[in-house]
Write a protein that binds this DNA or RNA. Structure first.
Lengths: 166, 166
DNA sequence: TGATAATATTGAGAAAGTCAATGATTTGGC
DNA sequence: GCCAAATCATTGACTTTCTCAATATTATCA
């Protein structure tokens, strides 16, 4: 038996080209998925990540490396486990990331005076300098992705996101 | 020669256990990274995804499958290429996802009357039913992840995110 | 018509994520 | 103080996801 609904009855994609740079996405803007914050955050993260990775490329960094470098520069002296918890990384991923950054001489593993199992991450001088350069680029990336938002709206977005993830 | 800066001078993680369920993250809350929306969206996406995947598990769905099912159910009749663009998926990933969903009989590839290269995605009856069940679960997941936000704040968050990703 | 581009597909390889096992160490109960 | 259980970093295997190039079919357009 044939399905009750006949498909492909509403689409008219190729006729009108949008004036802006966007393609045929207006059609999907009112779909239920486009209202889910899970979808929206996934897309925001995807776009932001891609742009940031692009801007960090000439420093041989990806956002994942930048994130651990940033934490090593933060003065909070995180252990690897704490870092993994904060960045949502498996312990094994942490050692891999720390290995490459330590291999580049930008961070160090230091013994934790309170617990000899644990290792504390700190940035070297070179690490601080690299972080300074990288942070400029990620700020640029953030500015770009938030360009449609006012300063107040950016703070608002930050605050709302912080409320749901902490 | 010893390094100029002595590390591990400020941490006191294990002494006070937080009253809530969170661990030692308060220490990192004022780090620069915690103010970056790239980081916040990544974390939000990670948490949301994990919870949604959990709630969808008994339907043998992940959010990635749910997303294409949702679009197939939306009445917008997306082509595979359009779907990939909207969901930030490589064409090859789209065919893989569509293959499994079509194999389960919940969506169909239909010929695009305007372009015989392209294939349009529509949901079957079984697909609509599966989507109804799945959507309940993702709504539950969203409600859970946004539980600290008022209804107005949720709308605000949705609107701000939509502005930056569309 | 013929050249160029776009669509879905395949396949290969890299990157990222997941998980279990292990040695060293700490913690907590006794 | 001692022993069992838990925790931390690490390794290695494995799965999933991502990325990219090549291809056959079909559209577009000069």
């Amino acid at each position: 038996m044939p399905p009750s609904t006949t498909a492909a009855s509403a689409a008219a994609p190729s006729s009108t080209k949008s004036a802006t740079s966007e393609g045929s996405e207006e059609r999907f803007l009112h779909s239920p998925l486009a209202r889910e914050v899970a979808f929206l955050t996934a897309r925001a993260r995807g776009r932001g990540n891609a742009l940031a990775n692009q801007l960090l490329a000439d420093l041989d960094l990806k956002v994942r490396h930048f994130s651990v470098l940033a934490m090593a520069c933060s003065g909070t002296n995180p252990s690897q486990r704490e870092l993994g918890g904060f960045l949502d990384l498996d312990p094994s991923q942490v050692v891999a990331l720390v290995d490459v950054l330590e291999g580049r001489g930008v961070i160090r593993r230091e013994p934790d005076p309170r617990d000899r199992r644990s290792k504390i991450l700190v940035a070297t001088e070179a690490g601080q300098e690299l972080y300074a350069q990288a942070a400029r680029r990620t700020r640029e990336a953030e500015d770009q992705t938030l360009k449609k938002l006012s300063s107040a709206e950016r703070d608002q977005l930050r605050e709302l996101l912080a409320r749901i993830v902490f």
